[in-house]
């Protein structure tokens, strides 16, 4: 079974974020990056399926030069080869549709049974790229996947619904699944894995190589302003007898502030 995993590199979770000088995104200087968390679980799921059923795990990532670090980490953990969509033309591809167009084009000649992506990225959090890729490649898809069970030419998946409900769905393969964080235990890249990754292929793909021009990558959606949550102060006096006031306070703490 051949599995493609889409990876995105995002700012590390403990980063101290500042808004950039253009006011449209964060200041990317002095920030460390890591594999988006849900993508790491998608990769882990792919590696586990490969261990059970054989085949190949192919990583695809669109990003600047630094994204190579996350690609190498995936290879060190056991992915077989990688495609790095790396071209200044891709810099404008900041919305989901443009990124998906690039990924779909890069996968046109690949043979795969499954494409796994994280449910959403830890930076933009659109949760769209996977679904648009599926649409563009004409694949069935399932979101928020908790468990993956391949059967012959189909795959059964457990999806997470609201309020603790789950749903089992069966899809013909090839299919695209967006994976929920926490569905498995992530492995470490070992020293041996890091050394073995040096011999694995990272194919750098430019827009022209997959027949795309900057027109194809124009975003349909742009971020106009990025800002930190604005804090406001409001003081409220609760009147009444102590017992009643205490009851009101508890209610407010529980339902408005949601701290108890």
């Amino acid at each position: 079974m051949n599995i493609v995993v889409c990876l995105k590199q995002v700012p590390k979770k403990d980063s101290i974020l500042r808004i950039g000088s253009d006011g449209k995104w964060i200041d990317e200087r002095d920030i460390s990056y890591e594999m988006s968390e849900a993508d790491a679980y998608a990769l882990e799921e792919a590696l586990r399926q490969k261990e059970k059923h054989g085949g190949e795990v192919i990583v695809v990532s669109l990003g600047p030069e630094r994204a190579r670090q996350s690609i190498k980490e995936a290879l060190a953990k056991g992915a077989d080869r990688a495609i790095h969509l790396f071209d200044s033309v891709f810099d404008t591809a900041t919305d989901s549709a443009a990124v998906a167009r690039a990924i779909s084009a890069a996968l046109k000649d690949e043979k795969y049974d499954l494409i796994l992506t994280g449910l959403q990225s830890d930076d933009y959090g659109f949760a769209q790229v996977g679904l648009i890729v599926a649409e563009q490649l004409g694949l069935p898809s399932a979101t928020i996947v908790m468990e993956v069970q391949p059967e012959d030419s189909a795959v059964r998946v457990k999806r997470e619904l609201e309020s603790g409900w789950f749903q089992w769905v069966r899809l013909p393969m090839p299919a695209l699944l967006t994976i929920q964080s926490g569905i498995n235990q992530l492995r470490y890249a070992t020293l041996k894995g890091i050394m073995a990754a040096k011999k694995k292929e990272i194919r750098e793909v430019k827009a022209a190589d997959i027949g795309l021009t900057s027109d194809d990558l124009k975003p349909g959606q742009v971020i106009e302003r990025a800002y930190l949550p604005e804090k406001t102060k409001r003081t409220e006096f609760i009147e009444g007898k102590p017992a009643e006031a205490a009851a009101k306070l508890v209610e407010k703490l529980r339902f408005d502030a949601r701290v108890i």
Binding site: Q69, K72, E73, A76, Y188, A189, T190, L191, I194, M195, A197, K198
Partner: peptide, 15 residues
């Protein structure tokens, strides 16, 4: 080096 950076990140994650 790229390898040393990978090792460093592995250790950071392990810790």
């Amino acid at each position: 080096t790229e390898d040393q950076e990978q090792l460093r990140r592995l250790v950071e994650e392990f810790v």
